[in-house]
Simulated assay, not measured.
Amino acid sequence: MDAAPSPAAPGADGLGAGRERLLLLDAASLYYRAFHGVPQSLTAPDGTPVNAVRGFLDAVAFLVAEHRPVRLVACWDEDWRPAFRVAALPSYKAHRVGPGGGEDSPAALGPQVPVIAEVLAALGVARVGCAGFEADDVIATLAARAVAAGDVVVDVVTGDRDLFQLVDDAAGVRVLYVGKGVRRAEVVDQAWLAARYGVRDGAGYADLAVLRGDPSDGLPGVAGIGEKSAAGLLERYGDLAGVRAAAAEPASAVPAGQRRRLLEASGYLDAAPAVVRVVREAPVPVVPDALPRAAADPGSLERLVQRWGLASSVERVLTALGSARG
């Protein structure tokens, strides 16, 4: 991204003194980035690529060592293109559907995802998804539950800008944006959103995303309304509802061209919020999320290490777990 990275050093931000830190990992975002960032020459003894597995585990080790959470959950995509979002906007991720109807993803990545799940289980690291919902919704739901319970700071680890909508300084929710890599994570709080996008908070970012659109997700946005003009409208009229109300009022100060485009996009603007906004009350199963201090199943973990050649990466995770609350 264009903004200068803000180092995410533990304790340097002053956030969460005396409060537990919960790390919510956007697992798919991390293992996709690991797959594309770590050479496929890293293989198991039988030659099977394990670059995504190794990269994902190394990311977990770094995050635990750097941020020292008390709780951690790897949030899983059980449905990458939920029916309720497609019903609202059929173009949603349509360009990413593969020949078999599933997500079009690299052939060498798919077999690695179950290995990651198995290693997390052997380590005792919580992993949870929710049928019919994306990982974004799982993260939003777990964050909302944690905030409601109190005494917790939530760090959402993702390379997906969609989750910026969760940022809420008062609630203690921020994003560690790994677009430039886990070691160069940018701490996204409300000041960061204001400086980068000109919006006040996470809710403002969601409204901006609706207006601007996102081609990577099949969201067309409002024709002729880019990021800056969307931010300007939101600053003047407060939120998406205020922008639409002003566009519908002939006496308002909305420029004629923007007014016309907003009115022409009324169908899209009716549908898009349900697609862009995360679900904060999804039926996500409750799982124990305390950070383990040692492997939950050492025997299974050792078998996985030997089968897939993961000794160094698993050792880094175990070292980080052992010292996280030291």
Rank of each mutant, 00 (worst) to 15 (best):
A17R: 13
R212K: 15
A74N: 09
D58S: 14
A195N: 06
G132R: 05
P7I: 02
K93A: 08
V286Y: 00
A135S: 14
E118I: 00
C130P: 12
A149P: 12
G18S: 05
V278D: 00
G18D: 03
R303P: 11
R81F: 03
D270W: 03
E118W: 00
G124F: 02
V287H: 08
P220F: 01
I139G: 14
A88R: 14
L263S: 08
V210D: 07
Q190Y: 00
A8H: 06
D136Y: 08
R96E: 07
P220M: 03
A148S: 14
L321T: 07
A28E: 01
R19S: 13
G213E: 02
G257A: 13
E186M: 05
A170V: 14
E315V: 05
G322L: 05
A83Q: 14
G309S: 11
Y197C: 10
L321C: 10
A245N: 06
R316I: 00
T158A: 15
L25S: 05
M1C: 11
G202Y: 01
A4G: 11
A206G: 14
A17C: 04
L211F: 06
A290E: 13
A271D: 11
A272F: 04
T158Y: 02
G37F: 02
A107G: 14
A195R: 15
S313Y: 01
C130V: 07
G110R: 15
A294L: 01
E134R: 10
T48W: 00
L24V: 09
E78H: 15
Y205H: 11
G198S: 10
R261Q: 15
D189P: 13
V128A: 08
D160V: 08
V284G: 12
L269E: 01
D169M: 10
G221M: 05
L262K: 06
R303L: 12
D207Q: 05
E249C: 11
L193Q: 07
S91E: 12
D2Y: 04
L176I: 05
D58P: 01
F56Y: 15
P285N: 08
D58F: 04
L63G: 11
Q190F: 00
V53Q: 07
R212Q: 14
P90D: 07
A65R: 15
R261M: 10
E315W: 00
A170L: 13
G218V: 03
L208D: 08
A324D: 05
G101M: 06
P99H: 06
A170C: 05
P273I: 02
D214P: 12
G98V: 09
E103P: 15
L120M: 10
S266A: 15
